[in-house]
Design a protein around this nucleic acid. Structure first.
Length: 425
RNA sequence: GUGAACGUAGCUCAGUUCGGUAGAGCUCUGGAUUGUGGCUCCAGCGGUCGCGGGUUCAAAUCCCGUCGUUCACCCCA
């Protein structure tokens, strides 16, 4: 045998038996997004590298070390999409959506690509649902976006998720705060771990997230961004919390919540699930009022979220929900004799033409084997053809759930099977 | 990128301590039941023991290297 080739590291195959639950999840998400007035957007799976460099931010881990970047045949630098917001913002600008009625509300279901070390709930190619709402800075819209995600989790029965909420401020108040925090960190540098000393310059807010004991002790006394918000940001933050309350959405304020994209302003949030292990974040997002402008569009506020399909499914599986399964064909055809195989083949053709799902044996299985296969396929009926049926122009229908059997004229048997198909087998 | 654990049949694993002819369950195929599935019983198909090298009369087993998987750090969905 030749050397085996396996799926690339951190990727996986979605087999036929995995499909029904994913289809169900996509249908649920689609229904929720429809209720909230979001329209679907699809963009290319790759973009010019500079879109992500400029949009997501040069200092982010995503841009610095996690992108699948390649040169195309024309020598242009392209990158497989690592996240959705930058692509959506690009489409907003490119299609002049600022001339549409605002806000423009979009949703997507896209594969994302990040060159990371895989582990539980983390892949190099994964899928996200997301929404983006452009053109309004109303805190009510922040609360709606969070509400959409909460509604989705509620609709699919994903329990035990905790919402964490923070505000990142804006370009008025954050620079001043960052400078203040840097001064604090420089004073306490001797007590910090090497990584946090490096973060002091690059991304001081990240120091709040450090798990080293010494750093945590220092950070308890650190100034907090939520205490330094400008009046407009503070008012916005309070209003978001009010509107969450009006939807009955519980949350925990977490001033240490710092997300990995540079474009966030004001609201950031994340839903976490304890049953997911280390990769607890199941969905998150926030407001990005400077992003559209940064990639060459008119100044336009926006807010959105992304949520991981694999993590949702992992959490659902672990909480032992009764997840939907696929349905079998209306009929599985069983030939009792070699002569009947051709008649079964023709019957399958006729059933399929009339809209019924039908299947039959292609391996020369024994009668017992064909019946086993009928049961395995979860067919509603076994449609049995033997010498008697051939002679009489009949079909024997066996209802597999009860074992009840009935011999019918061929035309009536077909009608019965088509009817079962319509009833949802 | 760093650390740890683990790689034996399509799947889940035993066998490795202390080297001596490659095993089980599940799945699959046939039969018991010559025109009938699920339960039971019987039989069969199926393996370069991740890969490469070393030690040895002899390696799944011991040693070295390498690749992969998983979990964790980091980061994120």
């Amino acid at each position: 045998m030749a050397e085996r080739i396996t799926a690339p590291k951190g990727t996986y195959d979605i087999l036929p038996q995995d499909q029904p639950v994913r289809r169900w999840l996509v249908a649920c998400a689609e229904e929720i997004f429809r209720r909230y007035g979001y329209g679907r957007l699809d963009t290319p799976m790759f973009e010019e590298t500079r879109l992500f460099a400029r949009g997501v931010g040069e200092s982010t881990d995503i841009v610095r070390k996690e992108m699948y970047t390649f040169a195309d045949m024309g020598g242009r630098s392209m990158t497989l999409r690592p996240e959705g917001t930058a692509s959506a913002a690009r489409a907003y600008v490119e299609h002049g959506m600022h001339t549409w009625p605002q806000p423009v509300k979009l949703w997507y279901h896209w594969p994302m690509f990040r060159y990371e070390s895989p582990q539980s709930g983390r892949y190099r190619q994964h899928w996200q649902f997301g929404i983006e709402a452009f053109g309004s800075d109303s805190p009510m819209l922040d609360a709606e976006v969070i509400g959409v995600l909460a509604a989705l989790y509620d609709h699919i029965g994903l329990a035990q998720v905790e919402l964490r909420l923070n505000s990142m401020g804006c370009r008025e108040c954050r620079p001043a705060y960052a400078a203040e925090l840097r001064r604090f960190l420089e004073v306490h540098a001797p007590a910090l771990c090497p990584e946090c000393r490096a973060r002091t310059r690059l991304n001081p807010l990240r120091t709040f997230d450090c798990k080293v004991e010494g750093c945590r002790a220092v950070m308890v006394g650190a100034p907090r961004l939520t205490d330094s918000l400008c009046p407009a940001c503070a008012e916005h933050h309070t209003a978001v919390q009010t509107y969450l309350g009006l939807q009955g959405i519980a949350f925990v304020s977490d001033h240490r919540l710092v997300r990995g994209m540079d474009y966030y302003t004001r609201t950031t949030f994340e839903f976490q699930s304890a049953i997911l292990g280390a990769q607890a974040g199941v969905g998150g997002g926030g407001r990005y009022d400077n992003l559209v402008e940064a990639i060459g569009g008119p100044p336009t506020p926006g807010v959105g979220f992304g949520t991981g399909v694999e993590r949702i499914l992992l959490a659902l599986t672990r909480s032992r929900q009764d997840l939907p399964e696929g349905r079998g064909p209306a009929a599985y055809l069983v030939a009792l004799t070699e002569a009947a195989r051709e008649a079964a083949f023709v019957l399958a053709h006729d059933l399929r033409r009339q809209g019924a799902a039908a299947d039959l044996d292609f391996l020369g299985r024994s009668v017992k084997g064909q019946m086993k296969q009928a049961a395995r396929s979860r067919a509603k009926f076994a449609a049995i053809i033997g010498d008697d049926e051939l002679a009489g122009g009949t079909i024997t229908l066996k209802r597999l759930s009860t074992g009840q059997e009935e011999r019918l004229p061929r035309i009536d048997a077909i009608a019965r099977i088509v009817e079962a198909e319509r009833d949802g087998a």
